[in-house]
Nucleic acid binder design. Structure first.
Length: 562
RNA sequence: GCGCCCGUAGCUCAAAGGAUAGAGUACUUGGCUUCGAACCAAGGGGUUGCAGGUUCGAGUCCUGCCGGGCGCACCA
C-alpha cells in the first residue's frame, strides 16, 4: 500500500539523517495543488532536532530522491516546511483498473454483528420530517456498517402504547365511525392532545383510558386500538418502502416494552431502583446524573422501564450481538445517560454493548415542531411535494408516465436525504422548504444527474462499439483531478463508518461530481481521434461505479435516466 | 440555577492541531447545431461571537464572558 510504503521511506530517510520522529503523519493536503500526500514531519521534529523546518524538509527530500518510492512522481518542499508528494500516472491507472462493484468495502468489522435502531415513529402519531431525519441518518449508518463487513440488523422501536395512544383514542371515541385512515388518525391525536392540556375532565378520562388500554380491559377500546395501530403501521410500511429501509426487527412498547415492568420490579427488590412518592425511580445523582422515573405511582411503565424490556429483547433475539446502536435526536441524550447508567447495574452485559448516538433536531426557524400541537410536516407530504417539483423538470423529457413517476420518487427522496446527510449529524436542521430542498449545486439531484450523464456516455460508447481501456498499457496522458480523487473513496468510507458520520461521504461525492462535471465539460470522452479515449471511458465507468456505491451508502438510489 | 451541545461569507454548510479558512446558494457576466445546460467558466463577498492562554503553528485544545438550542420526576 502506498501510504505504508511512503511512511516507511520517510522514516528511513529521517533515520539516515539522525532525526527522531515518533510517528510519521501522512495525509491528503486540503488542496489538490499541494499534491496527493503531504507530511508535516519537518515541522514536527524541528524543535527537537534544533534545525529549521524547511532545512529538514530539504534534506529529507534529497534523501528520498536518491531512491524515489514506488508510485511517486515528484516530491516538493512547500510552505513552512511541508513535504508534498505527487503520484505517477501508473499509480492512478492501477487504482482505476481495480475499481469494481465492491469499490469502497473494507473488512474492519468482518465477523461482527451490529444492531442499529432508528426512525422510531409512534403509531397513532404522525410520521414527520424529524422521523425522516432519523431514518436517513440511521439507514446510512447501517449501510456504512455493512460496508465495513459487519452483519447489520435494523431495528425500529415503536410506541404503540402510552399516553399519546390514549389521547388519540379518546378523540376517536367521539369522532363517529366513518372508516379510519391515517389522516383521521392525525386529526384525532392533535384533538386529544389539546383536550388533555386544556380540559380537566378530558385529562382525567384520558388518564383512565391509558390504564384501560394498557390492561386491555375494554372490548370496544381494544377494537379501536387494533384498528388505529394497523392503519399507522401500514402507513409507516409504505414510507419505508419509498425510503429504502427494510427493518429486520420491529419492537413495540406494547410487547417488548411490557417486559420492562418485571425487570424494573426486580431491580427495585435488588435495591438498584428505589421507591419515591409511590413511583419507582433510579437515582442518577449517584453517578453525576439526575433521577428518572421507571414505574409511575400507578404502576405503569414509563419510557425508561420499557427501554429495559426493549434492550433485553434485542439480545434475546440476537444473542451474539457485538454492538447495539440506538440513534435518536439529541433531546434524548441525557435521558439515555441515565437509562444506560441504570442498565449498567441491572443488565451489565447488555449495557456494555449498547451505545446511544444523538443527531440534531429538525426545527422550524420560529418554533419547535410538535406533533402534539399539529404543526408538523409529515414525511408523506414532503416527499409528495418534492416529487411534484421533480415532475415539472421532467415535463419535456421523452419518458413514459410510469418512468417519470419512478424517477420523481427516486429524485425526491434523494434530494431530501441529501439535505439531511450533507452536514455533520449532530447539528440541527432548520427546515425551510425553499432552502432545504435543492436540485442544483450542493444537492442530491446534482449527484444523480452526474451519474446519469456518465451512464449516458457509457451507453453511447456501447452502441458505437467503442471499447474501454484494456488495462494493460498506460501512456503518459495527463493525470486528471478525477483520478486523484477516485482512489480515495475507500478511505472516506472507512472514516465515515468509524465515526458514524455519513456527511464525509456526501462531501466527498459532491467534490467528485464537481470534478467529473468539469472534466466532462472540458473535452470529449468518446473521440476516435484521441488515443486516450479508451482510458477516459474507463475513468467514466469508474466514476459511475463510485458515485452509485457512494450514494448507496447514503441510502440514495440512482436513476438511469432523469 | 445545574448539565450537555452549538456560534465560520448575506443565507445553508465543509475544513482529521497545519499551507492563501473552502463549497453551494444568492448577485453580476459568458457558454447549448458537440457524449444530457438539474451542467460548465469567471467575478466580488471573512477580525471563524468577544477576551485571554497553550503550541513552531489554533476555526479546531484550555479558561472566562456574550448569544442560541436541548435536557433536568411520574410524557415519549
Amino acid at each position: 500500500m502506498i501510504v505504508g510504503d511512503l511512511k516507511k521511506s520517510i522514516q528511513e530517510a529521517l533515520k539516515t539523517l539522525g532525526i527522531e520522529a515518533p510517528k510519521v503523519e501522512l495525509e491528503h493536503p486540503a488542496e489538490l495543488n499541494h499534491g496527493d500526500f503531504s507530511t508535516n514531519v519537518a515541522l514536527a521534529t524541528a524543535k527537537i532536532a534544533k534545525q529549521k523546518p524547511r532545512d529538514i524538509a530539504e534534506k529529507v527530500v534529497a534523501e528520498l530522491q536518491k531512491n524515489l518510492p514506488n508510485g511517486v512522481k515528484k516530491i516538493e518542499v512547500a510552505g513552512a516546511g511541508f513535504i508534498n508528494f505527487y503520484l505517477t500516472k501508473g499509480f492512478f491507472a492501477e487504482e482505476v483498473k481495480n475499481i469494481g462493484d465492491d469499490f469502497g468495502k473494507n473488512k474492519n468489522l468482518e465477523g461482527k454483528k451490529v444492531m442499529v435502531e432508528y426512525t422510531d415513529p409512534n403509531p397513532f402519531k404522525p410520521f414527520h420530517i424529524g422521523h425522516l431525519m432519523s431514518n436517513a441518518i440511521g439507514e446510512s449508518i447501517a449501510r456504512l456498517t455493512e460496508e465495513e463487513g459487519a452483519q447489520v440488523k435494523r431495528a425500529c422501536w415503536q410506541g404503540d402504547i402510552g399516553l399519546h395512544v390514549a389521547k388519540a383514542i379518546y378523540a376517536l371515541l367521539q369522532m363517529g365511525d366513518d372508516p379510519l385512515n391515517i389522516g383521521k388518525l392525525g386529526v384525532a391525536y392533535v384533538f386529544g392532545a389539546k383536550a388533555y392540556e386544556t380540559d380537566e375532565t378530558a385529562k382525567k378520562k384520558i388518564d383512565e383510558l391509558n390504564q384501560v388500554i394498557f390492561e386491555k380491559a375494554d372490548d370496544a377500546v381494544n377494537k379501536l386500538y387494533e384498528a388505529g395501530r394497523k392503519v399507522s403501521l401500514e402507513h409507516f410500511e409504505e414510507l419505508y418502502k419509498s425510503l429504502g429501509t427494510k427493518f429486520d426487527y420491529k419492537f413495540f412498547e406494547g410487547i417488548e416494552g411490557r417486559e420492562g415492568v418485571p425487570i424494573a420490579k426486580q431491580a427495585l427488590k435488588d435495591g438498584i431502583l428505589e421507591e419515591s412518592d409511590g413511583a419507582v425511580v433510579y437515582r442518577g445523582e449517584k453517578v453525576g446524573l439526575h433521577t428518572r422515573v421507571f414505574l409511575t405511582s400507578k404502576g405503569l411503565p414509563t419510557y425508561e422501564a420499557k427501554e429495559l424490556g426493549l434492550n433485553k429483547a434485542k439480545f434475546k433475539e440476537e444473542p451474539n450481538l457485538d454492538d447495539s446502536i440506538i440513534i435518536t435526536a439529541n433531546e434524548q441524550s441525557d435521558y439515555f445517560k441515565v437509562v444506560l447508567a441504570a442498565m449498567r447495574e441491572i443488565m451489565p452485559q447488555v449495557a456494555g454493548k449498547t451505545r446511544h448516538i444523538a443527531h440534531g433536531m429538525m426545527r422550524f426557524s420560529d418554533s419547535k415542531m410538535s406533533s402534539r400541537k399539529g404543526n408538523v410536516i409529515t414525511g408523506e407530504s414532503l416527499i409528495a411535494d418534492v416529487a411534484i417539483l421533480v415532475h415539472k423538470r421532467l415535463a419535456d423529457r421523452d419518458l413514459s408516465k410510469e418512468e417519470k413517476d419512478k424517477i420523481a420518487q427516486i429524485v425526491a427522496v434523494g434530494a431530501i436525504k441529501y439535505s439531511i446527510l450533507r452536514q455533520a449529524i449532530g447539528g440541527d436542521i432548520i427546515f425551510d422548504f425553499e432552502k432545504s430542498i435543492s436540485f442544483e449545486g450542493d444537492s442530491g439531484p446534482y449527484l444523480q444527474y452526474s451519474y446519469v450523464r456518465a451512464k449516458s456516455v457509457l451507453g453511447k460508447a456501447e452502441s458505437l462499439k467503442v471499447q474501454p481501456w484494456d488495462g494493460r498499457k498506460v501512456e503518459p496522458w495527463e493525470t486528471t483531478t478525477l483520478e486523484r480523487l477516485l482512489y480515495r473513496f475507500p478511505e472516506v468510507v472507512e472514516r465515515a463508518g468509524a465515526e458514524y458520520e455519513p456527511h464525509y461521504v456526501t462531501t466527498y461525492l459532491t467534490e467528485l461530481a464537481g470534478v467529473f462535471n468539469s472534466w466532462y465539460a472540458n473535452g470529449k470522452i468518446i473521440d476516435a481521434g484521441d488515443p486516450a479515449s479508451p482510458y477516459k471511458l474507463a475513468l467514466t465507468q469508474a466514476f459511475a461505479i463510485t458515485m452509485k456505491n457512494g450514494l448507496g451508502l447514503l441510502g440514495i438510489k440512482v436513476p438511469e435516466k432523469m
